[in-house]
Simulated assay, not measured.
Amino acid sequence: MPDKTFRMHRAGPDRPRPRPIMLAIAGDSAAGKTTITRGLVEALGPERCVSLCTDDYHRYDRAERRELPFTALHPDCNHLEILEQHLQLLATGAPILKPVYDHATGELVRPELVEPAPVVIVEGLFPLHSKLARACFDVTVYLDPPEEIRRGWKVARDTRARGYTTEQVLAELDRREEESAAYVRPQRSHADVVVRFAPIESRDDPAGTPLSATVMLRPTIDHPDLTGVLQPGLTRAMHLKLERDPDGRPVESLHVHGYVPREESLAVEKAIWTALGDPDGESPECLGRIGDARSEPLAIAQLLLLYHLRDLGRQVAP
């Protein structure tokens, strides 16, 4: 990835605090970005991790957007230049005064001060939109669920939490489709890690079977060595394949199966957590949480990202 050949000039000797590790989680609306981020923040703890959402950089509030010829998925609907400036500041260990968009009311409200923690997670529609933004991150992730699943998630979320009707959500999805294809999905090609939650196509699992996950590991960064984790007896829950991504590039794909008994997934989680350097403790219970339910493939995907963050923390000098 060309962006990896240069990095932001970060905290020098005049700054006493070490530079943060920067993680981007990009994806379309209702792809699961907030869910995966919430578990990581809780696992790391608020003193070690801070997150922000690029939705806060909307240029217009919800009422104003109704009169516009484009949607929130269009770059012109967002202050992306300010986002780039703020990413550069955070990457150097400096605080920012971040705008705030209230999803409950659709209004732009009072900005808030964000002090960078040792880990900064930026999730949303546009963290990987520009070359300058991408250069601020140590590791980048794109969430890529099948469209029919994502649409179902968006209908469920927006009708439950944001006051929309099903018809309104579906109409907005149709209105956004062209801009989603033009501006959001292309960010997938810039991600170091692509995560896809979906059923396994070759299986005819009954309704209610938990979704599996495919974690595509591109060779744009150094990924952790999982040979010690993928031991005999654990391969039914998780296995690694050498495949090609949609652009034809060779990648390693980690397949995490949602249909296996929970005890097998827990054994994989334990192996990864041990590899993280905590052989005696249990992996955080907050991982894999979706409301009151739990997804073992989600927990394992989050653990792999924690693996990356811990490894980067050992590599990055103040």
Rank of each mutant, 00 (worst) to 15 (best):
R110S: 15
A299V: 05
L40T: 01
D192G: 02
G291P: 06
I300F: 02
K154H: 01
L68H: 08
R59S: 04
E264L: 14
T220Y: 14
A181V: 12
L276G: 01
P297K: 07
T235L: 14
P118F: 09
G124D: 00
R110E: 15
A301Y: 01
M216T: 15
V41I: 10
I290N: 08
L276A: 05
D3W: 13
G291Q: 04
F6A: 14
V100D: 08
C286Y: 06
V155D: 02
H255P: 02
L305Y: 05
F137K: 00
E177W: 10
G233I: 06
L173R: 02
P99G: 02
Q168D: 11
H58S: 03
A24Q: 04
G277E: 07
E112C: 09
D28K: 03
A26C: 08
K241G: 12
E84A: 15
P127W: 00
I121T: 05
G93M: 00
H58Y: 13
P46A: 13
Q85A: 13
Q168S: 09
R310F: 13
I36W: 02
K154W: 01
P250K: 05
P284E: 06
L309W: 03
G12M: 11
L312E: 10
R48V: 06
L305R: 01
L234T: 06
R196A: 14
A11W: 06
R19N: 14
R151T: 08
V195Q: 08
G288V: 01
T71R: 03
P186M: 07
L240N: 04
K270T: 15
A156S: 13
H74G: 00
R151G: 11
F197Y: 08
E252Y: 12
Q88L: 12
L170T: 05
L254H: 03
P146F: 06
P246A: 06
L40G: 01
P127Q: 06
V100S: 09
E84L: 10
L240A: 09
H9P: 14
P232R: 03
V256L: 15
L68R: 15
V139G: 04
R162E: 10
A94H: 11
R175D: 11
V268R: 00
Q315S: 15
S180N: 12
V229S: 01
G39T: 05
Y57L: 04
V184N: 01
M22E: 00
P250E: 12
G291V: 06
M238T: 10
N78F: 07
G281K: 09
R175F: 01
D14V: 12
H9I: 15
C286W: 08
R65G: 00
Q88W: 10
D14A: 15
T37W: 01
L89P: 00
P318Q: 13
S29R: 02
L132Y: 04
P46F: 11
G291H: 09
